[in-house]
Amino acid sequence: MGLYIETRIRATLDDLWARTQEPARHQRWDLRFTEIEYLPRAAGDPQRFRYATRLLPFVTIAGTGVSAGERERPDGTRTSALRFASPHPLSLLAEGSGYWRYVPDGDGVRFLTGYDYRPRWGAFGALADRLVLRPLMGWATAWSFDRLRLWLERGITPERALLNWLAELAVRALVVTLACTGLGLESLLLLLGPFAASTAYLCPLLLSVVVCLALFTAPLASTPAARRCLRTPPAHARAPRVLRSLENPR
Rank of each mutant, 00 (worst) to 15 (best):
E6Q: 13
I9K: 05
D15S: 10
D15T: 05
T20R: 07
Q21F: 09
E22I: 13
P23C: 11
P23F: 07
A24D: 13
R25A: 10
R25F: 06
W29M: 06
R32P: 02
I36K: 11
Y38G: 03
Y38F: 05
Q47D: 07
R50L: 10
T53F: 06
T53V: 07
R54E: 09
R54Y: 05
L56N: 03
P57M: 06
F58K: 09
A62I: 04
G63N: 01
T64P: 01
S67P: 00
A68Y: 00
R71S: 08
D75G: 01
S80F: 04
R83M: 06
F84I: 00
S91P: 04
L92W: 01
E95C: 03
W100P: 01
R101Q: 08
Y102Q: 04
P104D: 03
V109R: 00
R110H: 05
T113C: 02
T113I: 00
G114K: 00
R120K: 04
F124H: 02
L131Q: 01
P135I: 00
A140S: 11
A142F: 06
W143C: 03
L148Q: 04
L150E: 06
L152F: 13
I156P: 06
A161D: 02
L163R: 15
N164V: 09
W165N: 06
L169Y: 06
L169F: 06
V171R: 08
A173V: 07
C180G: 14
L188D: 10
L189V: 12
L190V: 11
L192H: 09
P194A: 08
F195V: 03
A197H: 12
A200W: 09
L202Y: 09
L206F: 07
L206D: 02
A214F: 05
L215R: 14
T217H: 13
A221G: 14
P224T: 11
P224H: 08
A225Q: 12
P234W: 13
A235W: 14
H236N: 15
R238P: 12
P249M: 11
